[in-house]
Structure formats: C-alpha cells, structure tokens
Amino acid sequence: MDELNSPVRRPRRLPPLSSLRAFEAAAAHLSFQRAAAELSVTPTAISHQVRGLESTLGQPLFRRLTRQLALTPAGLRLFHGLREGFDMLEAGVHALRERSASDTVTLTTNTAFAAKWVLPRMAAFRAACPGIELRLHASDLLVDLTRGDADLAIRSGSGGWPGLVTAELMAERYAPVCSPLLGLKRVQDLPKHRLIHSDWQPQARAPAVWSRWFEEAGIAASKSRTTRAASGLSFSDETHALLATLAGHGVALLSLTLCAEELRSGALLQPFGPALATGSYFLTAAEGREREPAVRAVWQWIAGQAGLRVRPAG
C-alpha cells in the first residue's frame, strides 16, 4: 500500500533533530566551537547536545583529545549517513524555494494602465492561473527588464526596444471625453468648458496634449484659446484626470482604452473627434524570459485578455 495514502504509519524512532544537527556540524568541523558558530549557539550547547546523543545511542561518537576532536568508528558511520541525509533535505528545500520563486511573476506598467486595465482583471487571472502569484508594479518610471527588475512589462510607445521581445496588444488613441452632465455636443462649444490636462513623460514621442489636438482638429490658434488650453485643471496621474472628468469638472483628452468601460456605460461620452494616435501598448520581456513557464503563462493570459493570439517577436 502507498504509504502516503495509508491510515497507518510507523512512528520514526529518531533522536532529537537538534542533537543530530549539532553532531553533524561538530563532525564536519571536528570542533565544537566552529560548529557553534555555524549554528549560532554556544560551544557548551553543542557539547551538551552531542553528549545527549551519545547517551541516547549508548556509545561514544567522538574521542576528545587535547584541543582536538576525532570521530570514533560509530561516529564516522553516523556522520556519513547524516551528511547524505541533510544534503538531500537541503536540496529538497532549495528546489521548493526555487519553484516558489519561479511561480511568482512581476508585471510592471504605468499607474493608469494598472488601475484601469490590469486590476479589474485580477479575479479572472486568479481563476485562469491559480498556481501563479502575479505581483503588480505600478509606476510611470521604466524598470530595467534585462536586469531582472521585473519579469514582464506593458509599455506604451512604438516598440522595438533593444534586448526585449515584444507583442503589440492594442493601438492607443486619445480623444476629448466629458461627462454627459456638461451637455457638450459640438466642437464650437468647447471654449465654454474647462480643459483637463494630464502630464506626459518627457520621452513621449506623440503626447496627447490639447495644443496638438487643436492643431489636428484644424482649429486655428488664437491668444485666448492658447491661454485657455494652458489653464484649467492639471494632473500628474491620468486616473485623477479621469475622476475629475467623471465628476463633471471639465473636458479631458483621455485614453479610449482606459475609459472604455465608462464610455460603454454612458458615464462618459466622446462628443467629437479627432482621436490622437499616441502609439500602442506592448507586452514585453527580456529576451529568453518569455520561455519560462510561469512568465509564458502570464504572457498568454494578457494576450488573451487583449483579444489576441500572439507570439513574442524580437
């Protein structure tokens, strides 16, 4: 019968584990003092544990010479057995820790995408990948994937980053969005409303800012309009701009991806265009990391959530 499934198990008749550890360390060093340093106890404690083990076994394990220890034949046999057993135990624990670490995946992305796209899907992730712990690192600062600061990233831009494999998840567009409470329907009425701004990273190639929107909308610049575009409410975090827009505080250029749920529900509306292209969202990993089982599982789940069947491209 399989012992793992047996209701009857013979008790192990072993001396205390602490005494076996103390003896194995003392035998390896042939010194109570060095064994004590390894186990972070006192030499007296090691000596006491060894004497207790000798009493339990009914035979000496060491010959105590002047300033020196030597193993007896019985001690030598026990040492070899314990060393092999402890080595196997250590290897098993190490393998378990490695597996635990390999089943934890860190995903980094900007704060707005984390709040509006990743977090609402976390319950779906836990159901799809119950054996993987997903750690979400939300920051507008880029981390170094090649250095191992994170396992995966969702980044916006144009892709093609050196040392990374990428898969395009979705194109990103920004457009004027507002609460229906404002009653805004025509672009001609836009000057009557406060404009809401979000900060963009300095390295952004095509930021969605109001000055660019007026230019692409073909609306001629004027001193009053330029002044109004620069005024209004300004936020460093796009999620705060979204909340202000929901509250009816003005009109914002928002990501149509990140406010998709609010647009579907009618809490927000896009009264007119144009929509500004700002690049795409890309799923990225350091070259080679995408083949690791846990990382690959998260990669496939994210791609599926984006409605894609993708393979990473270098």
Rank of each mutant, 00 (worst) to 15 (best):
G288A: 06
L233N: 03
P60V: 00
H29W: 10
P176F: 09
L169N: 02
L182A: 06
H137D: 14
W117A: 15
A114Y: 02
E172L: 13
E84R: 15
T42D: 13
C178P: 11
S40K: 13
Y281K: 14
A252N: 09
H29P: 00
A285E: 02
P120F: 05
A138V: 08
E215G: 04
I196Y: 02
A275S: 14
L152F: 04
S139M: 08
L96F: 04
P293T: 03
A22T: 05
F86M: 14
L65A: 10
S255I: 08
R121N: 12
V251C: 09
N110Y: 08
V310S: 15
D2I: 06
A45Y: 14
A95I: 01
A204W: 09
R64W: 04
T227H: 13
T109F: 01
V187M: 13
T146S: 13
S211L: 09
R311Y: 02
A150W: 05
A70Y: 08
L283M: 10
F235M: 11
S156N: 07
R9F: 09
A150D: 07
T278C: 13
R228V: 04
F125H: 06
D87E: 15
P274N: 10
K116C: 11
L78T: 07
L181S: 14
K116Q: 12
S231F: 01
A303P: 00
L30S: 14
G92P: 04
A241S: 14
L246F: 03
I219Q: 04
L263A: 08
L242T: 15
T284F: 01
H80Q: 15
A297T: 15
F235G: 07
P207G: 07
A303M: 01
A74L: 07
L276D: 02
L195M: 15
I46D: 00
A244I: 09
L39M: 13
R99M: 11
E290N: 10
G52W: 09
I154H: 05
P73D: 02
A45C: 08
V187I: 13
E287H: 11
S280L: 05
A286S: 15
D151E: 03
A230M: 10
A294I: 00
H94P: 02
R212T: 00
V295G: 05
A206H: 10
Q270T: 09
T72K: 14
G218Q: 03
V251N: 06
A150P: 01
A229G: 00
T108C: 07
S6M: 10
A27P: 10
E98V: 13
Q203G: 04
E3A: 15
Y281N: 13
L283I: 01
L71Y: 01
E262W: 12
G160K: 09
D151Q: 03
V93D: 11
Y174P: 00
Q59F: 12
A229I: 10
A114K: 00
V165T: 11
A45S: 15
T108D: 03
W213L: 03
F79R: 15
P271E: 05
A26L: 09
L76W: 07
R97K: 07
N110Q: 07
V143E: 02
H94I: 12
R21P: 02
L268G: 07
V143F: 08
R135H: 10
L152I: 15
Y174R: 05
G273A: 12
